[in-house]
C-alpha cells in the first residue's frame, strides 16, 4: 500500500534504490523494536532468574521496583500500536478497496474477499511454491533461487509472527498486571494459563527476532553490519535483485527501464 508520494526508484550517486517502506510504516517499526527490546530486557531476567546474567540485567534496567514499571509502559505502548495498526489497516482497506467496489456497484462478499486475498501481505499460492523452490535451491537441486515478489514468504512470516504474538502476549500480560481487578470475574486458573502463554510466547518471539529476523536483515553477509532499509525505507538494487527479483523486474518494467534489468545472481 505504498503511497504515491514516494518514488518507486530513486537514484543517488549513480546507484538505484527501490522503495520499500513509508515513513509512517518505519515509525511504527521504531515503536515496535524499542518496546520489544525494552520488554525483553525487563522480562527475561525474571523468566531466567537463575541465570548469572539475570540479576545484573535487571539491575541495569532499574532494579526490581523499576523494571516491571518499564515493562508495563512498553507493553501498553506495543499493545496500543497493535490496535492502531489494525484500525489503520482496516481503514486503508476500506477506503482503497471496498469503497471503489461500492462505487462500481460490485460490492459482494466474494469480491471483497478476493480483494483481501490479493493484498500483498496475504500469504498466497506463490509463497508456497517459493518455499519449495527455495528448498530445491538450498539443497542444490537447482541453481535458480526463487524470485520473490514485493513481500517474500519470509517477510510475511516476520509480519505475522508479531501479529500472532502480540495478541497472545499482550492481553495475557495486561490481565496478569491487573490480576486483582480481573479475578472479580475471571477464575484464578486463567492466570496460570496466561502466565505460560505470556512467558513462553515471549521466548519464541525474542529468539525469533534476535536470531532469524536479525539474520535476515542485519547479519546476512551482504547486509552486515546493518541493513539500512528500516531507516531509509529504500533498498539497494543488489539487495532488491537478491531478495525480490520478481518485484524488481516488475518495477523496472513499469518505470520503462526494461533494457537495464540485470540478471539474477547469487
Amino acid at each position: 500500500m505504498a503511497m504515491p508520494k514516494y518514488k518507486k526508484i530513486c537514484e543517488r550517486n549513480g546507484k538505484r534504490y527501490f522503495f520499500r517502506f513509508s515513513l509512517h510504516q518505519r515509525l511504527q517499526h521504531v515503536v515496535v523494536f524499542t518496546t520489544v527490546i525494552t520488554l525483553s530486557l525487563t522480562g527475561f531476567p525474571l523468566k531466567y532468574h537463575d541465570k548469572a546474567w539475570a540479576e545484573p540485567l535487571i539491575n541495569f534496567m532499574g532494579g526490581i521496583n523499576v523494571a516491571p514499571v518499564l515493562h508495563h509502559i512498553a507493553g501498553s505502548i506495543l499493545l496500543g500500536l497493535f490496535v492502531y495498526h489494525t484500525i489503520y489497516w482496516i481503514y486503508l482497506f476500506y477506503t482503497r478497496r471496498v469503497l471503489p467496489l461500492k462505487r462500481e456497484g460490485r460490492l459482494t462478499l466474494g469480491n471483497v474477499g478476493r480483494e483481501f486475498l490479493n493484498q500483498p501481505m496475504i500469504p498466497n499460492k506463490k509463497d508456497f511454491h517459493d518455499l519449495i523452490d527455495m528448498f530445491k535451491y538450498l539443497l542444490y537441486f537447482t541453481n535458480r533461487p526463487p524470485r520473490y515478489e514485493r513481500m517474500s514468504w519470509k517477510e510475511k512470516f516476520d509480519y505475522y509472527a508479531p501479529y500472532w504474538g502480540i495478541p497472545v502476549l499482550g492481553p495475557a500480560g495486561f490481565i496478569l498486571w491487573w490480576r486483582d481487578e480481573f479475578t472479580h470475574f475471571l477464575p484464578g486458573i486463567v492466570l496460570n494459563a496466561l502466565y505460560i502463554m505470556h512467558t513462553d510466547e515471549a521466548l519464541l518471539a525474542a529468539l525469533f527476532i534476535f536470531f532469524v529476523h536479525w539474520y535476515n536483515v542485519h547479519y546476512a553477509p551482504e547486509k552486515f553490519p546493518l541493513g539500512t532499509v528500516f531507516i531509509t525505507g529504500y533498498l539497494s538494487e543488489d539487495d532488491m535483485i537478491h531478495e525480490h527479483y520478481a518485484e524488481y523486474v516488475k518495477v523496472m518494467t513499469e518505470q520503462g527501464l526494461q533494457d537495464e534489468i540485470k540478471s539474477q545472481h547469487h
Binding site: K47, Y48, D50, L203, L207, F211, Y215, Y219, P221, F224
Partner: peptide, 29 residues
C-alpha cells in the same frame, strides 16, 4: 570466513536455545 563464522554461530545458537526451550523455569535446580 564470515559465512563460516555465521554457520558456527547458528550451531551455537541451536545449542544455546535448547535448555531455554526445554528446561522450563527452575527445573535445572
Amino acid at each position: 570466513l564470515y559465512v563460516i563464522a555465521l554457520m558456527a554461530y547458528a550451531i551455537w545458537f541451536g545449542y544455546f536455545i535448547y535448555p531455554l526451550i526445554f528446561a522450563h523455569g527452575g527445573h535445572e535446580e
